[in-house]
Amino acid sequence: SDYEVNVNGIHHRFHNISEELIKFIEEALRRGEDLREIIKKVRELLG
């Protein structure tokens, strides 16, 4: 049904976003950045 496609589409989009965010955060932590600064950047990215 349309509803299922829609829900799956939304889930898929969020899954991709969270994968990208996790990579972004892991790389920043590897560079020794402060978690609070990383979260601030993530918030800015998400608008």
Rank of each mutant, 00 (worst) to 15 (best):
S1V: 15
S1L: 15
S1Y: 13
S1R: 15
S1Q: 14
S1N: 11
S1E: 10
S1C: 08
S1A: 09
D2L: 04
D2N: 05
D2F: 07
D2C: 05
D2P: 03
D2K: 02
D2A: 04
Y3V: 02
Y3R: 01
Y3H: 04
Y3F: 11
Y3M: 04
E4Q: 05
E4S: 04
E4G: 02
E4R: 01
V5D: 02
V5F: 05
V5Q: 01
V5N: 01
V5H: 01
V5Y: 02
V5R: 00
N6K: 08
N6W: 06
N6H: 10
N6Y: 09
N6R: 08
N6V: 14
N6T: 10
N6L: 09
V7P: 02
V7Y: 06
V7A: 09
V7R: 04
V7T: 04
N8R: 03
N8W: 00
N8K: 05
N8F: 01
N8M: 04
G9W: 00
G9Y: 01
G9A: 02
G9V: 02
G9M: 02
I10A: 08
I10Q: 13
I10S: 07
I10W: 07
I10M: 13
I10G: 05
I10L: 12
I10N: 12
I10K: 08
H11R: 14
H11N: 13
H11I: 15
H11A: 15
H11P: 07
H11W: 14
H11M: 14
H12Y: 12
H12V: 14
H12M: 05
H12E: 06
R13I: 15
R13M: 15
R13T: 15
R13V: 15
F14M: 00
F14H: 00
F14D: 00
F14W: 15
F14N: 00
F14V: 00
F14G: 00
F14R: 00
F14S: 00
H15W: 04
H15D: 14
H15S: 11
H15N: 12
H15A: 06
H15G: 10
H15T: 13
H15L: 07
N16R: 04
N16C: 05
N16A: 06
N16Y: 05
N16L: 05
N16K: 04
I17M: 06
I17K: 00
I17Q: 01
I17W: 00
I17A: 08
I17E: 01
I17L: 10
I17D: 00
I17P: 03
S18N: 11
S18R: 04
S18L: 03
S18V: 03
S18Q: 05
E19C: 03
E19S: 13
E19W: 11
E19G: 11
E19P: 13
E19T: 12
E20Q: 08
E20Y: 09
E20N: 11
L21F: 04
L21P: 00
L21I: 11
L21G: 10
L21Q: 09
L21Y: 05
L21E: 06
I22M: 06
I22G: 03
I22K: 09
I22W: 07
I22V: 08
I22T: 03
K23N: 12
K23P: 04
K23G: 10
K23T: 10
K23W: 12
K23F: 15
K23C: 07
F24P: 01
F24Y: 14
F24K: 06
F24E: 08
I25C: 02
I25R: 00
I25K: 00
I25P: 00
I25T: 01
E26F: 05
E26N: 10
E26L: 06
E26D: 13
E26C: 03
E27W: 08
E27H: 09
E27D: 14
E27T: 11
E27F: 10
E27C: 05
E27A: 12
A28F: 08
A28H: 09
A28T: 05
A28W: 12
L29E: 04
L29M: 10
L29D: 03
L29G: 03
L29Y: 04
R30D: 12
R30G: 12
R31Q: 15
R31E: 10
R31T: 12
R31H: 13
R31M: 14
R31N: 14
G32E: 11
G32Q: 10
G32K: 06
G32F: 08
G32C: 03
G32I: 02
G32T: 07
G32R: 00
E33D: 13
E33C: 06
E33W: 14
E33S: 10
E33K: 08
E33T: 09
E33V: 13
E33P: 03
E33H: 10
D34C: 05
D34R: 07
D34K: 07
D34A: 12
D34M: 09
L35A: 09
L35V: 14
L35E: 03
L35Y: 02
R36E: 08
R36K: 11
R36T: 11
R36N: 14
R36Y: 13
R36G: 13
R36I: 13
E37V: 14
E37I: 11
E37Y: 07
E37F: 10
E37L: 14
I38L: 10
I38F: 02
I38E: 00
I38R: 01
I38S: 01
I38P: 00
I38M: 04
I38H: 01
I38K: 01
I38Q: 01
I38V: 12
I38C: 02
I38W: 02
I39F: 03
I39G: 02
I39P: 00
I39T: 04
I39S: 02
I39M: 03
K40L: 14
K40G: 08
K40C: 07
K40R: 13
K40V: 12
K41E: 10
K41W: 12
K41T: 12
V42Q: 00
V42H: 03
V42Y: 04
V42S: 01
V42F: 04
V42T: 03
V42I: 09
R43P: 05
R43S: 14
R43Q: 14
R43C: 06
R43V: 12
R43I: 11
R43T: 15
R43W: 13
R43G: 15
R43E: 15
R43N: 15
E44M: 06
E44G: 05
E44Y: 09
E44N: 08
E44S: 06
E44V: 08
E44F: 08
E44W: 08
E44K: 08
L45I: 13
L45R: 05
L45N: 08
L46W: 07
L46H: 10
L46C: 10
L46N: 09
L46G: 09
L46K: 12
L46I: 14
L46D: 08
G47M: 12
G47K: 06
G47F: 09
G47C: 05
G47I: 12
G47W: 10
G47R: 05
G47V: 11
